[in-house]
């Protein structure tokens, strides 16, 4: 084997692969304007009740007061910067938005009164709508299971919620919970009873009504925008005509 001369084509392919390897490693770290989503900041700000989003001074108080920032891929400060710049995919696919435990420390500490927790909620909603999240990542799964359960019964049954969560993500993780589960059983804190409210129909109708109203409001707003655009275009055109 060792005596065999090196095949020149092989050498070339290795060199080729090497250069390809470095080509993949060396990456552009920013996006050109055309690749960014310019309307992203506006949409998030609207969902999160915050024109204040634009006034962020990048002081980093949010990242410093966040108890989970050292697990995040982007700290809250960077998330805000990325939103402002229009890095939509990066923001919607990061772990940060899901790791937020909604403790509101950043919201209370922010010197510019940006409602950062609400920004995270808004990003979660966007991420779920665009399916840019990992399918088996437990946090969004938990949120969805919880949502479904309450939608159906009006209340949440903790034991069922946890069982559903592990069945949909990683059933083996249940083993780690056995000790705690047995403890809960022993102390009478574990029940498999499904809780529900009496007026389930009223509750579901309320959610349906809100769903419909929200859609109507969105359509109305879109119509408004279109009407405004048409109006301003018409004004522009008329002005031009007058000048001519």
């Amino acid at each position: 084997m060792e005596d065999q001369p090196l095949d020149s084509s092989k050498v070339r392919s290795i060199v080729g692969r090497r250069s390809l390897y470095w080509d993949q490693k060396v990456k552009r770290r920013f996006k050109y304007e055309a690749e960014l989503d310019q309307g992203f900041a506006e949409r998030v700000a609207k969902l999160a009740y915050g024109e204040k989003l634009y006034s962020c001074i990048q002081c980093g108080t949010c990242s410093a007061s966040c108890p989970v920032s050292h697990w995040m891929d982007f700290t809250p400060r960077r998330v805000i910067a990325l939103i402002q710049a229009g890095y939509k995919e990066e923001v919607l696919e990061c772990f940060t938005i899901w790791l937020c435990a909604s403790c509101y420390a950043c919201t209370v500490d922010c010197p510019k009164q940006i409602k950062i927790t609400d920004v995270m909620y808004a990003l979660r909603q966007e991420a779920l709508e665009h399916a840019g999240y990992r399918k088996r990542f437990p946090i969004p799964v938990l949120a969805r299971e919880f949502f479904k359960q309450v939608m159906k019964n009006g209340r949440n049954s903790e034991s069922h919620l946890m069982l559903n969560l592990y069945m949909k993500t990683n059933p083996f993780k249940l083993l780690k919970m056995v000790k705690v589960g047995l403890g809960l059983l022993r102390t009478g804190r574990f029940s498999l009873k499904k809780e529900h409210i009496k007026q389930r129909e009223q509750f579901q109708n309320l959610l349906k009504a809100v769903d419909r109203l929200e859609k109507e409001a969105r359509i109305e707003e879109a119509n408004d925008r279109t009407a405004k655009r048409i109006a301003s275009e018409t004004v522009d055109r008329l002005e031009k005509e007058v000048h001519q």
């Binding site: 909620y121 979660r124 909603q125 309450v150």
Partner: peptide, 9 residues
């Protein structure tokens, strides 16, 4: 927190 994450209204 879950409801807030999915639909605020």
């Amino acid at each position: 927190t879950s409801y807030m994450s999915i639909n605020e209204s």
